[in-house]
Design a binder for these strands. Structure first.
Lengths: 115, 115
DNA sequence: GCGCTACTTAGACAAGCTTCGAAACAAGAG
DNA sequence: CTCTTGTTTCGAAGCTTGTCTAAGTAGCGC
């Protein structure tokens, strides 16, 4: 992603998305379009050191460990988080570029001083 | 939403999302987590005047009118777009606050000098 | 009124997603 | 090696979603 965000509007409101871009972005959006995964992402991102081990995550939900693992895999497959094993535990961290890309899609929509 | 975005990180990476916030945001995200709806949103937002009539939208897809209408309703129900009938045609426009909210969730993620 | 066009709603079906339990797998401690 | 902790994979039940056809509503022109 070397695209520079110019000024006016969110990319989504500047020109029509191509079919392939839309498909690619939808995959990422689908990954975060779930309350559990949204909270998982938030917990990982806000955890001390920017990373969290699965054991920290599992306790916050009324879900079984395999289910949490499945959601984490969904986020990982979408390229939003990355996992690393250190000893017994697996630590996950956010991939900022991916999250930024989603933000950039919608974010710089209007309402600077000039509007 | 009177929350002021402070500085450091995206909201999602600053503190864990509450269960209710996550549920609410997931509804909006689900609405955009679809290639068709993403393109519809983009086409509406980038159309001249900031609004597009359904007749402009339908032709761009290999889908029947009811299906397009269904997707538009999903976006409208999620609070992302608003529709208005003028004569024979129905015009849709983006609701900037809603789109901005999604952007603010992810956008200001780190990578300033101090991190 | 009548027909025509633009759009929405209703109902039905296939496909996919979420969740679970059980079992298999990996890494470290004794 | 065996035990424990933690993670992943597999298979199945239940629910949600995307799409269609058919029918309904709203405005325009004859």
């Amino acid at each position: 992603m070397t695209a520079v965000t110019i000024a006016c509007c969110a990319p989504i409101a500047r020109e029509p998305l191509s079919e392939s871009d839309a498909a690619e972005l939808a995959i990422m959006l689908k990954a975060v379009a779930d309350p559990i995964r949204l909270r998982l992402l938030s917990m990982i991102g806000s955890h001390a050191g920017g990373e969290a081990c699965v054991c920290d995550l599992t306790g916050a939900f009324d879900l079984t460990a395999p289910t949490i693992s499945h959601h984490l895999k969904t986020l990982r497959t979408a390229g939003l988080i990355d996992g690393e094993r250190r000893g017994t535990w697996v630590y996950y961290r956010i991939i900022p570029e991916a999250v930024n890309r989603l933000g950039a899609l919608f974010a710089p929509l209007a309402e600077p001083a000039t509007l």
